[in-house]
Simulated scan of single mutants.
Amino acid sequence: MLGKLFKYEWRSFWKVPAAINVFLLIITLIGAISLISPFWELNFEIMDTLMVFAIMFYYLAIMAGAIAVAVYIAIRFYKNVYTDEGYLTHTLPVAPRDIIFSKLFVSVIWSIITGIVICISVFFILFAAMKDYINTDEFVTVWQELQRDVLPVVEEAFGMNLFVFALFVILIMIVNTFFSIFMTYSAISLGQMFTKHKVAGAVIWYVAEYVIVQFGSSMLMNIPLLGLISEPYAAAAMTPSDVGAMVKLMLIGSVILSIIIGALLYLLTEYMMRRRLNLD
């Protein structure tokens, strides 16, 4: 049944985020063509001002696209589960966890797609902006110098090679995507306890969750640093590999903490749907 719910959710969900991502790609194409063109080489005083506005517009467009996808995820969950559509959703012969996970997987996939599109967009814009400074021979030389001088230092500092580090960063991003969506779902579910202004209640709960999670995780992750501050001699004697080991430990701790809190938020969302359902 979860597979059928996933297919239905995908068909109902994909159009809006796809349109947002197409918009981001169009903005990227226009920006890259503009940067490659000789337009910016014109010797007018206003050109610097136009460039600043163009950069601001591009930044705002990228941010708006990312925020729009996140907002759409929240709106769709709210409408499908806690409004009049919720009466139909909850008459289906499925468990609340199937409803949650079908929506979660689709939301995570489109969040990752949007993140990839944004990364591609930034890469092409930077590449177009630096076209006059890019030389194939110089690029190869710089890359060889990085491999020889910089990468070994980075690998020693983090105690892992660059490929493993990149995989670890990707894992963190995926875990954080699941975590942020669970925060949204749980806040919306808790917001239904308000008799009126349920949307405002969901926003309040989201802000409260965000503050609590950020404060609690910061306190836990800073415990190793507090130990170093209390023992300055030990901190001064640390080698780069010791620092790398501590950073790696903090990153792993961050992933584990996100998984634990995300699981708790999921259980809270399922409990609210199963025991405290309050439809409009």
Results as ranks from 00 to 15, higher is better:
residue 38 P to R: 07
residue 265 L to F: 14
residue 2 L to N: 05
residue 28 T to G: 11
residue 101 F to M: 12
residue 90 H to Y: 13
residue 236 A to F: 09
residue 121 S to F: 08
residue 5 L to W: 08
residue 32 A to N: 06
residue 158 F to Y: 13
residue 147 Q to R: 11
residue 184 T to K: 07
residue 122 V to W: 04
residue 89 T to D: 14
residue 94 V to D: 00
residue 169 V to A: 15
residue 48 D to Q: 10
residue 54 A to M: 14
residue 229 I to D: 06
residue 99 I to K: 05
residue 264 L to D: 07
residue 74 A to N: 10
residue 272 M to E: 12
residue 125 I to A: 05
residue 26 I to T: 13
residue 62 I to V: 15
residue 192 Q to Y: 04
residue 257 L to Q: 03
residue 51 M to C: 04
residue 63 M to Q: 08
residue 29 L to W: 14
residue 193 M to D: 04
residue 73 I to P: 08
residue 191 G to S: 03
residue 251 L to K: 00
residue 88 L to E: 03
residue 152 P to E: 10
residue 183 M to V: 00
residue 241 S to F: 07
residue 273 M to G: 03
residue 237 A to E: 10
residue 73 I to A: 02
residue 129 A to C: 03
residue 242 D to A: 10
residue 117 V to D: 05
residue 61 A to N: 13
residue 226 L to I: 01
residue 109 I to S: 10
residue 36 I to P: 00
residue 192 Q to C: 03
residue 69 V to C: 11
residue 43 N to C: 00
residue 118 I to G: 06
residue 272 M to K: 11
residue 128 A to Y: 04
residue 147 Q to Y: 08
residue 215 F to R: 09
residue 205 W to A: 06
residue 86 G to D: 02
residue 149 D to M: 11
residue 85 E to R: 12
residue 95 A to V: 13
residue 199 V to Y: 12
residue 11 R to D: 14
residue 252 I to F: 03
residue 71 V to E: 07
residue 240 P to K: 11
residue 124 F to R: 01
residue 40 W to D: 02
residue 230 S to H: 02
residue 263 A to T: 12
residue 239 T to S: 14
residue 180 S to P: 01
residue 126 L to A: 07
residue 2 L to E: 02
residue 156 E to L: 10
residue 258 S to Q: 09
residue 47 M to K: 06
residue 112 I to D: 00
residue 31 G to N: 13
residue 253 G to K: 01
residue 280 D to C: 03
residue 230 S to A: 13
residue 187 A to K: 09
residue 186 S to R: 05
residue 5 L to T: 00
residue 91 T to A: 15
residue 262 G to D: 12
residue 253 G to F: 02
residue 173 M to N: 11
residue 20 I to T: 08
residue 43 N to R: 07
residue 47 M to Q: 07
residue 199 V to K: 13
residue 218 S to A: 00
residue 69 V to D: 09
residue 59 Y to P: 07
residue 207 V to P: 08
residue 63 M to N: 12
residue 190 L to P: 02
residue 96 P to N: 14
residue 25 L to W: 11
residue 278 N to V: 01
residue 165 F to E: 00
residue 240 P to F: 11
residue 234 A to M: 10
residue 63 M to C: 09
residue 218 S to C: 00
